[in-house]
């Protein structure tokens, strides 16, 4: 396998909330087309790291570069242009509650993508069908279940056919079958769109099934303690990581 170009380069990144240190000295790269997993115990700062990668929070130190451009050293309009290539699935789904599912997907299409409303509506229906929500176009987010919200949010994340997708615990709250279906969908997305995918997840099945590479954030030492292929880390990683990845067989 020839080495693929780097999509995201994270260098000595430090994450803080005010005075409070969450993680420090994070350095790793994510290759184009990889499915990259961010894992670690709850509260260790996975979501916080994700928020730094997608430009919602400014790093206390260090840099995040996409194709060589530093997300935080560039002007607002360049940053917005970079963000438009992202698709993000937030931990809570974050569907816009005043819009129907179909409108949720149409809004970025018409406002950012420049689609005509009729085309956008048609495409929105297709994306909803992809995540198994055909027929739910006119439902409001409050009228569907948690798992369905996650899937609708995934459809919205794909609205603009992004180059890089970020998922925060996509399978949390899904039953195992839907969760496996979601994994297939993610693999499919990568293979068909060639997208780079960054996923925060606890789900061992997903980690081994789809993860090409992974970083493990430690809550104790507040930094990364392992980086690499999860299947390798399971046997040769540091103890904390082996416990985490081996927990199914205890």
């Amino acid at each position: 396998m020839s080495p693929r170009p780097t999509a995201i380069e994270i260098d000595s990144l430090t994450l803080r909330y005010g005075e409070r240190l969450i993680q420090r000295d994070l350095s790793f790269t994510i290759a184009q087309g990889d499915i990259f997993i961010i894992m670690g115990g709850s509260g260790c700062g996975k979501s916080t790291l994700l928020r730094h990668l997608i430009g919602l929070q400014t790093p206390a130190a260090g840099s995040v570069r996409f194709a060589g451009v530093d997300l935080w050293q560039t002007d607002d309009s360049t940053r917005q242009a970079m963000q438009r290539r992202f698709g993000v699935l937030f931990q809570s789904g974050a569907l816009w509650s005043s819009l129907t599912l179909s409108e949720n997907i149409m809004l970025p299409m018409t406002e950012i993508g420049g689609f005509r409303a009729a085309d956008a509506r048609e495409l929105a229906a297709v994306k909803l069908a992809l995540v198994g929500l055909a027929g739910f176009e006119d439902f409001y987010p409050s009228e569907i279940s948690g798992g369905m919200k996650k899937r609708a949010a995934l459809a919205r994340a794909m609205a603009l056919d992004p180059d890089i997708l970020f998922f925060d615990e996509p399978s949390a709250g899904l039953d195992p079958l839907s969760s496996a279906h979601l994994d297939e969908l993610i693999l499919e997305l990568r293979d068909s769109l060639g997208a780079t995918i960054v996923i925060v997840t606890h789900e061992l099945a997903s980690i081994f099934a789809i993860g090409d590479n992974a970083v493990f954030l430690d809550a104790e030492t507040r930094t990364m303690i392992a980086l690499g292929d999860p299947k390798t880390l399971r046997h040769s990683g540091p103890e904390g990581v082996r416990n985490f990845l081996g927990r199914g067989k205890m």
Partner: peptide
């Protein structure tokens, strides 16, 4: 709270 505003931001809206 629902991260809806973050979703606006990441779309560049």
């Amino acid at each position: 709270v629902n991260e809806e505003i973050d979703a606006f931001r990441t779309f560049g809206l």
